[in-house]
């Protein structure tokens, strides 16, 4: 049975770019465009490999990056005046990144207010309750997870030939497996999850199962520090044993 994962935790191509820039400790105002473009495309490939739905905006940004890259490679056109008259092809992207970053920081501050407010109780009113959360319990970002995942993939022994058996691994089985491990131990490190994986298919199936558990709010994924090892724990909200649709 085909298994499509649809995640709506994407914060968009600008967010991905900021993440890549921060990870490599680069200056937004002076992005090595070739390197960033490569890393960006690598992420899109990974998302594709995972069968994640890639929003059109990510592809538009890929095109924009490649356009900027090619512009920077071209020698300045002698017919269009002196080179210093031409703006840096990265300027518009830099402006957008800085603007987006400012709003992202503002959103972080709002998150702080929200947390502060959550410690303050008022007389109970139905209308003051925000019903229906739209966010799965998710502490690391999706990009952190994918980065960790790509490390696991790279660590696999290469050139191992093996036959693919039908239904060798299923996401449903892996969901159960992860869940049972969490019942036994309160915490699993992300890399431990794949220690026993024999091949790429098993790694991918395990990763999809993890995403599914996050979506179902059965597990929480967190990082002690940025780019640190990712830890998987049972979601504090999930007290009921896992039921449908994995009953069998």
């Amino acid at each position: 049975m085909g298994y499509k994962i649809r995640l709506e935790i994407f914060e968009g191509p600008l967010d991905l770019l900021l993440y890549l820039i921060k990870r490599s400790e680069l200056e937004i105002t002076d992005i090595p465009i070739t390197r960033i473009t490569e890393q960006y495309l690598e992420y899109l490939n990974l998302m594709e490999l995972l069968d994640l739905e890639i929003a059109g905006e990510f592809l538009v940004m890929a095109a924009t990056l490649m356009q900027i890259k090619s512009k920077m490679l071209l020698p300045p056109d002698p017919e269009v005046g002196a080179p210093e008259e031409e703006p840096d092809p990265r300027a518009e992207l830099v402006r957008r990144l800085l603007e987006y970053k400012a709003f992202k920081e503002a959103a972080d501050r709002l998150r702080g207010f929200e947390a502060r407010r959550s410690g303050v109780f008022t007389r109970f009113g139905v209308e003051s309750e925000l019903d229906g959360g739209d966010s799965p319990f998710f502490e690391g970002t999706l990009f952190d997870l994918i980065t960790a995942f790509s490390k696991v993939l790279k660590g696999l022994p290469k050139g191992v030939v093996h036959e693919v058996e039908k239904d060798e691994f299923s996401v449903a089985e892996k969901v159960h497996e992860i869940f049972h491990r969490l019942v036994q131990t309160p915490k699993i490190f992300f890399s431990e999850l794949f220690r026993t994986s024999r091949n790429k298919f098993e790694v991918i199936t395990t990763f999809l199962a993890l995403l599914e558990l996050i979506r179902l709010k059965e597990v929480a994924v967190s990082q002690m520090d940025q780019f640190g090892e990712i830890e998987i724990t049972r979601s504090p909200r999930a007290t009921e044993p896992l039921k449908e649709p994995y009953a069998e």
Partner: peptide, 18 residues
């Protein structure tokens, strides 16, 4: 009674609106 936290997408959108 604990209020649900807003998702990152909601929060970013809200900050632009605000």
């Amino acid at each position: 009674r604990e209020k649900r936290r807003l998702s990152q997408a909601s929060l970013e959108t809200l900050s632009v609106v605000a």
